[in-house]
Write a protein that binds this DNA or RNA. Sequence first.
DNA 1: AGTTAATAATCAGTGTACCCCGTTTTAATA
DNA 2: TATTAAAACGGGGTACACTGATTATTAACT
Lengths: 165, 165
Amino acid sequence: MTKTGDHAGSITSLWERPGYLIRRLHQIHVAIFLEECAAYNITPVQYAVMTALLNRPDSDQITIAQDAGIDRTNVADVLARLEQRGLVNRRRSGTDRRMRIANLTAEGTRIARDMEHASLRAQSKLMKPLSPEKRETLMKLMTELVEANNEFSRAPARMPPEADL
Amino acid sequence: MTKTGDHAGSITSLWERPGYLIRRLHQIHVAIFLEECAAYNITPVQYAVMTALLNRPDSDQITIAQDAGIDRTNVADVLARLEQRGLVNRRRSGTDRRMRIANLTAEGTRIARDMEHASLRAQSKLMKPLSPEKRETLMKLMTELVEANNEFSRAPARMPPEADL
DNA sequence: AGTTAATAATCAGTGTACCCCGTTTTAATA
DNA sequence: TATTAAAACGGGGTACACTGATTATTAACT
C-alpha cells in the first residue's frame, strides 16, 4: 500500500511518474538558468550551442546538433538568433556547398567564456538541496540513462570523447 | 584529472552539466512517450492535464496548473486543444464568473483511463536500462530535487496529498 | 555520362513553456 | 459606498522541440 495504492481504478499520482519529475526538473533548471544568466539574455540551449562552437569551431549545423543534443531543425533557428545578435557568423563551406559553417564571433566567444561563472552558479543553485554524494549519484544515473536511451531521441547526441564510465 | 580536466581555460563538457542531462532526459522521455502512445495522439502534458482532471474533476485552470505543474497560460492552450477534440469541456463557474471550470468528457475519461497502460509501457522503456534499485534511487533523488526547488519554477506544483517521503 | 542515393539545409506546421499587458470580476478595505 | 487590491483569464510575443516535405548539392552506381 505504500507503493502506489492503485485500488479499484485509481490513477497513479503524477509524482510517481518519472516523466513528470523529469519535466518538472527541466522547467526548474531552465528557470534557474535564465535567472542566473539574465545579464546575458542567453537561454540554456543557446549556451549549449555556443559551448559546442567553442569546443569545435567551424562546425556545420548537423555537427552542432550532435554535439549539443539538439534537433537539426532547431539548430538553424538558434544559430539565426545568435547570428542576428552578432554572436555567431555563418558561411557556406568551400568544399561542400550544401553545408553552412558556423563560428562564434569575438563577442560571442567573450560571452560564452564569461557565462561559465553564471552557468556554474545556476548548477550550484539547482543541485544545492542534495548532498555532494547524492549529486554525484544523480549525475551518474542520468548519464547512464541518457547514454542508454540516446538513440530514442530525434537528436541523438555525440558521446563525450573521453568518458571514463 | 578524472573529474573535469579543466586545464587552462578549457570548457566543461556538456555531459558534466546537470542541465544538459536533464534536457536530454526530457527529450528522450517525450520521444518514448509519443511513440508508445501514438495510438492516442496525446502528448505527455495533455496526459498530465487529463490525469489532473481525472483525480480532481470540475477544476478551474489555475488548480489544474498547480496539480499538473504547468504554466497557467499553457493550461488554457492545452485545454483548448483537448476541448477542440471533444475530450474536455469548459464552462463558466456559477459562483465565480471569473473562473472556467474544466471537465473530461465521457470520451476524454475513456481515453485517459485507457492510456494508463501505454503510459506505463513508456515508463518501463525509459527506465529499462537501470536496475530496479537504481530506478528507485533516481526517482527518490528527482523527487527530492523537485520538491526542494519547487518554488523556483514559474509553475510551482501542488505537493502530493499523502507523500510518505 | 546519366540515373540514383544520400546528405545538408530550409520551410511550413503543431505543440509546449513562458513572458508581459490588459480586461473582467470578485474580495478587501477605507 | 467607493476605492483598491487581488484573482482568473485572454491576447500577443519569443523560444524550444519535433514532424514531414522540399530543394540544392554531392556521392555512388550502372
